[in-house]
């Protein structure tokens, strides 16, 4: 469990990134911090592994104040995945994944064997192990980034817009992959994004932030969709423009086969309403 207690961050130039922020992030589930740029979401994420130290308040990991922990040691037991992968360009894929275990004194052969298994976990061909990051596609690099984040088998995985820079098709695939990995491994994932759809897809808990790290609303995606706290939230999730209120288009679709076309409030066709669920999960299993 990660607890923010009245956390503030004021930068030396006087600007305030986060002011009196309090939140509990439950273990073994995914919490998504979502907000526009300037909402302080990345600052909040980086406070957890002490890349940024708060100027007020405390952050606790399982009731232990991180301010009392040695930053380098703390970081080595927390997985971190960032946009543009942040892989070391002069190290091969396998060396990148094995970086932290080797820093921690694990024997190289053991760390490499473990790294190969992690490539399996994130759905990468072991044949890529000896490549350099620049020789991979953006999506593959992000998978390596996830594998590296998982390498020390951390309880906590911090993800800073990890899928922000890949094209939509690959992003879908990576999101499904993350959902699958999370079902298997049950980490405490803290995920930062500006994409509300990504937040609703991945988050068990979604925290919508205003400028300056003020929580506009926190809850499950269903709670937020059913009951936007205010106009800011309604606008952020698109409810005010009718994007979230769907109705069946009577003129199209094959009613005899139980297919009804769904249209949102803006008139955009968003999908087919079926009687049986389960499409999403089979899609997740099929993606490579």
């Amino acid at each position: 469990m990660i607890t923010f207690e009245g956390v503030s961050k004021r930068f030396p130039d006087g600007s305030v990134a986060v002011d009196d922020f309090s939140l509990t992030i439950p273990s073994r589930s995914t919490t998504v911090l979502v907000g526009s740029s300037g909402s302080g979401k990345t600052t909040l994420l980086r406070m957890i592994n002490r890349m940024v130290d708060p100027t007020g308040g405390r952050i606790l990991i399982d009731d232990e104040d991180v301010a009392g922990l040695e930053p380098v040691k703390l970081r080595r037991r927390i997985g971190y995945v960032m946009q543009n992968s942040g892989l070391l360009p002069h190290r091969t894929v396998i060396d990148n994944v094995a970086t932290v275990p080797i820093l921690e004194g694990v024997k190289k052969s053991v760390a490499h064997e473990q790294a190969l298994r992690l490539l399996d976990t994130v759905g990468l061909d072991r044949g890529l192990a000896k490549r350099y990051p620049a020789q991979l596609s953006g999506g593959q690099q992000q998978r390596v980034g996830v594998a590296r984040g998982l390498a020390v088998d951390p309880n906590i995985l911090l993800m800073d817009e990890p899928f922000g820079a890949v094209d939509p098709l690959v992003r879908d695939e990576l999101q499904q992959e993350l959902l699958r990995i999370q079902r298997e491994l049950s980490k405490t994932v803290v995920f930062v994004t500006h994409d509300i759809d990504e937040a609703f897809l991945l988050g068990d808990q979604v925290v919508i932030l205003r400028t300056g790290g003020v929580i506009a609303q926190a809850g499950t995606p269903a709670e937020i969709l059913a009951n936007p706290a205010d106009e800011f939230v309604a606008s952020f999730i698109g409810a005010d423009r009718g994007k979230r209120s769907l109705h069946v288009d009577a003129e199209h679709g094959d009613l005899a086969r139980g297919e009804r076309v769904l249209v949102d409030g803006t008139g955009r066709v968003v999908g087919i309403l079926r009687d049986e669920p389960g499409i999403a999960s089979s899609h997740g299993a099929a993606s490579s």
């Binding site: 890349m51 970081r75 971190y80 960032m82 946009q83 942040g86 932290v100 911090l158």
Partner: peptide
């Protein structure tokens, strides 16, 4: 690249090792 530098901090390289290894 600043991304690489940030990420090497994030995964837990200390300052000296970061200089020589990254």
């Amino acid at each position: 690249s600043n991304d690489v530098r940030q990420s090497s901090v994030a995964v837990g390289y200390g300052p000296i090792r970061r200089f020589f290894v990254v």
